[in-house]
């Protein structure tokens, strides 16, 4: 993890934030705050995936200043809440490994397609690396996007018949229409 200055919300230093609240109304507020915090944190640290077993050590889920940690089960339930809005997806059945989409896949897709149209790259083939790490895309929101996530985004576009994935062994790329 790269150290990034995160502007923590007030809840982060409020000990009850790290205990799942039994009162329904309180709990929904609490979970909402967690969802926002997780997405903000991942956006700022450019985190595309996490493993709960490892992530519960991250500053995101453990505030050493007040010596509080969010329980792994609670993390999983909050991530599941995120998944309902398309902001996260579990990668295994045990729900330990997650991809986090601080933009939903659809948002990413329209963003990328918008860039392609702007740069007039329709009908040309671009490698995944060029699309995610190329010098041309520097400064774009999707710069540095993880390849696994990128493929999922492009699948969305493919469904809309806006591109076609080329998954040959030696060259992995995409052709936009």
């Amino acid at each position: 993890m790269t150290e990034v200055d995160i502007s923590w919300p007030w809840q982060y230093s409020f000990p009850p934030f790290f205990t799942l609240q039994p009162h329904p109304e309180t709990r929904s507020k609490q979970v909402a705050a967690w969802k926002t915090l997780i997405l903000d944190y991942c956006r700022q640290t450019k985190t595309y995936s996490l493993d709960v077993r490892e992530a519960n050590q991250w500053p995101l889920f453990s505030n050493s200043a007040i010596n509080r940690k969010l329980d792994s089960n609670v993390i999983i339930s909050i991530l599941s809440e995120l998944a309902k809005n398309g902001n996260a997806a579990a990668l295994d059945k045990a729900k330990n490994r997650w991809e986090i989409y601080w933009h939903t896949l659809e948002e990413w897709a329209s963003m990328i397609y918008g860039y392609i149209c702007e740069s007039g790259l329709q009908n040309s083939v671009i490698t995944f690396f060029e699309l995610s790490n190329g010098t041309d895309v520097e400064g774009q929101e999707f710069f540095g996007i993880q390849t696994e996530v990128l493929i999922k985004v492009l699948r969305v576009l493919e469904n809309d018949r806006k591109c076609e994935l080329i998954l040959a062994d030696d060259m992995q790329g995409v052709k936009f229409f």
Partner: peptide
């Protein structure tokens, strides 16, 4: 609201609401 940690159960004003 509650704060259930190894230090015990502690109650705080419900700042969430």
């Amino acid at each position: 609201c509650r704060d259930d940690s190894i230090e015990g159960l502690r109650f705080y004003p419900n700042l969430f609401l």
